[in-house]
Design a protein around this nucleic acid. Structure first.
Length: 597
DNA sequence: GCCGTTTTCGGCCCGACTGTTTTCAGTCG
């Protein structure tokens, strides 16, 4: 296993090197730009690779088969796997000011700008560059007017403040509030969130909105938007496009006004992803069409063919509608041409929540309050499972076995009052450092649902711990599997391939935890898990009533992970969940009889 | 450097906005 973990690093290292090589070529000028794009593509492909590169046959011919990787880059991969370096990269570094390359990640600093700065002043790191700009040394240099310099400093300031992105939940809140105000402006026919927000990425850089109105009203509407209370500094405002920063944050908002017959193409363009757009445009060009934010046109005659709605455009292309969550250039375009895209799970498919905490441990509410709230607000739910913490979680008020007994009586009492077996008895049990659980089997057997989670030992490889938990006969699900907190704590190391195999084999489910800073399991791994035949649950891990609404976020992750309704356990009836549990029980019995022989 | 129902050369998505320009290059998404 150690060997595998070391090998896994190669993908990241190589993706990083190719990214840097791309930056070098960008710097070397426009005549190298296609080479730069090729390296950037290779970097992205390798980063998104499901398997370790070391698991591919280590020869040029096999690697060349990967789309986006040709003979030349394949040779470099082989060289790296064999020698640990790439000669071409070592040589390339000598031709560029290596310390300045990452400046191209700062808004306003493109390759041309960086090159002029280096050629004129010979500075070698970004701090020197900023000092020079602040000292006014760039004044009078051709191409560097007052505004350009101001723009560069603004980019630097944003860069320094941290490139951290907003959580999806925060962006949704900000975006929806703005959207509802924009929709109310006179003359706006319709408006929609676009960009990574519409694709429901786990973190969001800026908020994009596309709005539809008659051209004659654009000026008036644009002015009204820029006067909304949320608007801070205006960054750009042209005829069709406005960008501004929100007053109370660093959030940038881009708004695009379009005509009715362009609405679909504009929404499509603004939703992205960039890679998806490029692929779609390239393909449509090969068919003799031109796709832009204004619509689909005949390449020769410029005749408008489609654009009013996204559906109309896909129909024109003879493609299945691609939900925004799938538009990441991960094979969705090819499948859509064959009408083979999965029908993604929806929020309305969810029939229950399998992970939540009550006042008995670290939740805020009594069980009865929770049940009444859910029955009123989530009328589709047929069951909820109270899963308070086990003894080890002292800070979180973990319960002792005798406490659970009392809790069972309380749940029985409320169910009786409700007249149905709505509340199920569960637990979020701790996986200890050695992979054992902190409640014994006799206790665990009594629960309707057992989630096993890791709450300690984040700085080690936790594959074995999780595998051991899967093998436990009472464990039904692994909770927040990677332990990450977005922007705060890195996920601990897990060999997901091993884990997924074990989950599928033992009939153990894996959770998509919907807490905004967890969203754990993450989208790419969800897709991989499903491909391994692993059953997925989507749960809120709610600690207070307002958090039950997080289910929407978890469903987004599942959609980005290509999940259909049938992949998600809690879109099923409780009876089906019982059946799922029986498989595990059967597996466990078989295992133990094998051992006894 | 990659790719191919325009397949081994000659393309490579497309358009808006900005700034500093007299016609366009750079940057962005």
């Amino acid at each position: 296993m150690k060997q595998m973990l070391e090998d896994r690093r190669y993908n990241h290292e190589l993706a990083d090197i190719f990214h840097r090589m791309s930056a070098c070529y960008k710097y070397l000028g426009p005549q190298q730009r296609f080479r730069a794009i090729a390296y950037e593509t290779a970097s992205r492909i390798i980063d998104g690779l499901k398997d370790d590169l070391s698991m591919y046959p280590c020869d040029v011919k096999s690697l060349d088969k990967l789309s986006g990787i040709g003979e030349s880059i394949a040779e470099k991969i082989v060289e790296y796997l064999k020698t640990g370096k790439i000669t071409a990269y070592e040589q390339l570094k000598n031709k560029v000011p290596e310390g300045l390359l990452e400046m191209m990640d700062i808004a306003g600093f493109g390759p041309a700008t960086v090159k002029i700065i280096y050629d004129k002043f010979g500075l070698t790191n970004k701090e020197e560059v900023i000092d020079a700009i602040e000292a006014g040394k760039l004044k009078g240099v051709r191409g560097f007017g007052l505004k350009k310099i101001e723009n560069l400093m603004r980019g630097w300031k944003l860069y320094k403040q941290g490139q951290e992105r907003m959580l999806l939940s925060e962006a949704l809140e900000v975006g929806n509030e703005l959207l509802s105000k924009i929709r109310k402006i006179e003359g706006i026919d319709k408006a929609e969130l676009a960009g990574s927000l519409r694709r429901r990425k786990e973190t969001i850089g800026d908020v994009d909105i596309v709005a539809c109105a008659k051209r004659k009203d654009w000026k008036k509407i644009s002015n009204k938007i820029l006067k909304l209370t949320q608007v801070g500094r205006v960054l750009a405002s042209g005829e069709t496009k406005a960008s501004f920063l929100l007053k109370d944050s660093r959030t940038q908002v881009d708004i695009r006004l379009v005509n009715e017959d362009e609405y679909g193409s504009a929404l499509m363009y603004f939703t992205g992803s960039k890679e998806h757009n490029v692929k779609l445009r390239t393909w449509s060009k090969s068919k003799g069409w031109k796709l832009s934010e204004y619509g689909v046109f005949d390449a020769k005659t410029d005749k408008r063919l489609a654009g009013r709605t996204e559906e109309e455009i896909y129909k024109w292309f003879h493609m299945q509608y691609i939900p925004p969550e799938l538009r990441e250039e991960k094979g969705e375009i090819e499948l859509s041409r064959e009408y083979k895209l999965p029908k993604l799970v929806e929020l309305d498919d969810i029939r229950g929540d399998l992970h939540m905490h009550s006042k008995w441990s670290d939740g805020a509410e009594e069980i009865e309050t929770i049940a009444q709230f859910i029955l009123k607000e989530f009328t589709r739910y047929e069951y909820i499972i109270i899963t308070d913490h086990s003894p080890t979680e002292r800070v979180a008020g973990g319960l002792q076995p005798e406490d659970f007994k009392k809790q069972f009586l309380e749940i029985d009492r409320i169910n009786k009052k409700l007249g149905k077996n709505f509340i199920k008895k569960g637990v979020e049990v701790d996986i200890l450092l050695d992979g054992s659980l902190d409640l014994n089997d006799d206790v665990l057997k009594q629960f309707d649902w057992v989630i096993a989670s890791i709450h300690t030992g984040f700085n080690r490889d936790n594959t074995e711990r999780l595998v051991k938990a899967c093998q436990h006969p009472s464990v039904n699900c692994i909770g927040h599997p990677s332990g990450r907190l977005i922007g705060k704590r890195e996920p601990y190391s897990i060999d997901f391939k091993i884990l997924f195999k074990k989950l599928a084999e033992t009939g153990t489910a894996i959770e998509i935890n919907s807490q905004p800073d967890r969203l754990d399991l993450k989208d790419d791994f969800v897709k991989e898990a499903v491909e391994h035949g692993v059953t997925i649950t989507i749960s809120t891990d709610a600690h207070m009533l307002s958090q039950f609404a997080f289910m929407e976020l978890g469903v987004s992750v599942a959609r980005r992970g290509w999940c259909t309704q049938k992949h998600i356990l809690n879109t099923q009836s409780w009876h089906s969940i019982e059946t799922f549990k029986e498989y595990k029980a059967g597996f466990a019995a078989k295992e133990s009889s094998t051992i006894n022989h």
